[in-house]
């Protein structure tokens, strides 16, 4: 994976989405085993980005970024890495 530290936003945004389990298969990683680079124009919410890549958000338990839970309205910074946490399979 290349440098993922946040950078000032520009029109062309690039973020890295990470996921494991069945969600990983849906994400279709292209950067490493768990990570997909997504590029888009302008600021978008996670919800919008998921629509863009056709992932149903009901399969995501929560968004995890900067060590915190974020909601689907969160707007990633350019270059940011975002983890998509699937639901637990029952402990």
């Amino acid at each position: 994976m290349s440098d993922t530290s946040p950078k000032p936003s520009s029109n062309l945004m690039k973020i890295f989405l990470r996921a494991g389990g069945q969600l990983r298969e849906k994400l279709r990683p292209d950067t490493d085993h768990y990570t997909r680079k997504v590029e888009y124009d302008g600021e978008k919410t996670i919800s919008d980005i998921l629509k863009l890549i056709e992932i149903d958000q009901s399969f995501i338990a929560f968004i995890y970024a900067n060590g915190e839970i974020k909601d689907f309205a969160y707007i990633p910074l350019d270059g940011q890495t975002i983890t998509l946490q699937p639901p637990v399979s029952g402990g």
């Binding site: 389990g21 990983r24 338990a61 929560f62 995890y64 060590g67 983890t83 946490q85 639901p87 637990v88």
Partner: peptide
């Protein structure tokens, strides 16, 4: 160690699931 689920699990355990379960 590099699995995406590891850090959230380490921080919250299964408690994070409350919100998802409720929303769904």
């Amino acid at each position: 160690q590099t699995h995406p689920n590891m850090a959230p699990w380490q921080k919250y355990g299964t408690a994070f699931f409350i919100d998802w379960s409720n929303k769904n």
